[in-house]
Amino acid sequence: MAVKEELIKLFEKNRGRYLSGEEIAESLGCTRGAVWKAVTNLREEGYKISAVTKKGYRLDSADMLSAAGVEKYLSHSCGVSLTVYKETDSTNIRLRELAVQGAPEGTVVIAGMQTGGKGRLGRKFFSPSDTGLYMSILLRPEMTAADAVRITTAAAVAVAEAAEKISGRMTDIKWVNDVYTDGRKICGILTEASFSLENGGLDYAVCGIGINVYEPDGGFPEEIRDIAGAVLDAPAEDARNRLAALVLEGFMRYYRELSENSFLPGYRSRLLWRGEDINIIRGDDIVPAKLIDTDERCRLMVRYEDGREDTISSGEISIRKRSL
């Protein structure tokens, strides 16, 4: 492993403490020149590292994403392998490339910024620098395409639980893939899959999760300002690393129990607009209905105005609360 990555781990283990160049070099088995070069490279990547004569170096970044920063909060049983970028086009794209190359289940790509993030139905996903958490998880499940929605719904519960633990505020889940706090969207989830031509099942699935941890400087863009929110009102020490670990721990636990639907009670208890009037939107068609619940296969249960009841799969469908 490069000196730079080893140095991040050392800084993470000694947060708040100065480490001399000699101490670092001895610990990492390298020269003091290599230490200086690694510090310079990390600063160029955005890490805030102070240097004081006769004291050494110290990591000052209060909330800097790193693989070492996430890993220190993970249990050994979580079973994930992390790659963390300061910036990338899309964590889903990066992970799909790794999936094609044979990367194992549990491979995770995380970024602090995306230049090409996307959500459901081809929409762009706003992914600014240093205020969000964007990650994708590679899965190789034995399931049909119809059951893949359970990956998305399990991820929604994992995010909701993690956000509640970090913020102390309750969350809601808007079917099928959005997490809300105080009526504002804090997370979107996009699961993309590759199908096997031999058996019609999944070859692999990539579960992409985008979370607004803080509101960006200057606020959210005008087109989403009325609906977007954030997990936290202000930056907090190591919040994004902690949040990433909580989401991964929760999701991987639910994923291993996916056939048992252990996530379903948490999903149903947070289901937004349960018992309320909604509009079901299919392209240009808008159909009024009442939202009843979700069934065991995570389909939306609705009742139309004529009294008929139906179950709806996600697909190319959106729902909105009906205005009075």
Rank of each mutant, 00 (worst) to 15 (best):
Q114R: 09
K48Q: 12
R225V: 14
S66A: 07
K9G: 15
Y134P: 04
P288H: 11
E192W: 04
M1P: 08
G112T: 10
L42F: 11
E249Y: 05
T294A: 10
L138H: 13
G250K: 01
R140N: 07
K37V: 07
G132M: 02
V109Q: 14
G117T: 03
E44D: 15
V247M: 12
S61L: 04
D63A: 07
I93S: 07
R320A: 15
N279I: 14
Y180A: 09
I317H: 04
I292W: 00
S81E: 14
G183D: 09
A193D: 00
E296T: 07
A99C: 07
R150D: 11
S27D: 10
T191Q: 02
T107L: 04
R303L: 03
E249H: 12
L59H: 11
R322T: 10
N14H: 11
S314L: 13
E316I: 12
C78F: 01
I166A: 04
G201Q: 14
L121D: 06
E222N: 01
A239L: 07
R94E: 14
E23I: 08
G56R: 07
V157G: 03
G283Y: 01
E161F: 09
L246S: 13
A145E: 13
V84M: 06
S27N: 11
V100N: 02
I173F: 01
E6T: 05
N279T: 10
P235F: 02
R270I: 08
D277T: 08
A99M: 04
F125G: 02
M113H: 14
V213H: 12
Y214M: 13
M135A: 02
D226Q: 11
L291F: 03
T181L: 06
Q101K: 13
F263I: 04
E222Y: 02
A68C: 03
A146E: 15
E222L: 05
N92D: 02
L42V: 04
S20M: 04
L7A: 12
A34I: 00
R140A: 10
R15E: 03
P128T: 03
I224K: 15
D238I: 03
L197P: 13
R150G: 14
V287T: 14
